[in-house]
Simulated scan of single mutants.
Amino acid sequence: MLLAWLERSVLVLVVAAAFVLCAVVPAHGQLALVLSSLVALAGAFAALLSRPKTAAEEA
């Protein structure tokens, strides 16, 4: 949450909040691992899709 405040990034805040939610939800065994992995994967895809295109990528 501190990183989201320092970077002023909504995406980092959402991913951090989702990780906290995964920790609070009583999931057992591999389900907890799958949930946290899905949060990280969704955050990575969102970061890649939300970045602005550079001039080299547009050409």
Rank of each mutant, 00 (worst) to 15 (best):
L33N: 11
A47I: 02
A42K: 02
A59I: 10
F19G: 07
A47Q: 14
A46I: 03
L49P: 00
A17M: 13
L48D: 12
L21C: 07
A18C: 11
F45Q: 09
A4W: 04
S9E: 07
T54P: 00
A42Y: 07
A23I: 05
V24P: 00
A16L: 08
E7T: 13
G43K: 03
M1L: 13
V20N: 10
L2M: 10
L13C: 05
V10R: 13
L38Y: 01
L2T: 13
S50P: 00
V10S: 11
A44R: 12
L21K: 11
Q30N: 05
A46R: 06
V10G: 11
K53I: 00
C22E: 08
L13R: 09
V12G: 01
V25Q: 09
V24Y: 13
E57Q: 15
A17P: 01
S36K: 13
A18N: 06
V14K: 04
A23R: 12
V15C: 02
F19I: 11
H28P: 00
L11T: 06
K53W: 13
R8D: 08
R8E: 06
L48I: 10
V34F: 08
R8F: 06
F45A: 09
F45V: 12
V14T: 07
E7V: 05
G43D: 04
A56Q: 14
L2P: 03
E7F: 14
L38T: 01
E58Q: 13
A18H: 02
V20P: 00
A42R: 02
S36A: 12
L2W: 11
P26R: 08
A42E: 06
V15E: 04
V14S: 03
S50K: 03
E7G: 03
A17Y: 12
L31R: 01
A47P: 01
V15R: 02
W5K: 14
L38R: 02
F45H: 09
V20L: 15
S37R: 05
A23C: 07
S9G: 05
V14H: 02
L38G: 05
P52T: 08
L48W: 15
E58C: 06
A42D: 03
L35S: 04
V12H: 06
A32L: 07
E57T: 08
L33F: 09
T54Y: 08
C22I: 10
P52R: 15
S50Y: 02
P52Q: 13
V34E: 08
V12L: 11
G43W: 04
A27T: 07
G43M: 06
C22N: 11
S9Q: 03
S9V: 00
V24T: 12
A59N: 14
A56T: 13
V39H: 03
A46H: 05
S37Q: 05
E58S: 08
V39P: 02
V24G: 05
V15L: 07
S50R: 09
L31N: 00
S36Y: 01
L31K: 01
A46P: 01
T54R: 15
V12E: 07
L11H: 08
L38A: 06
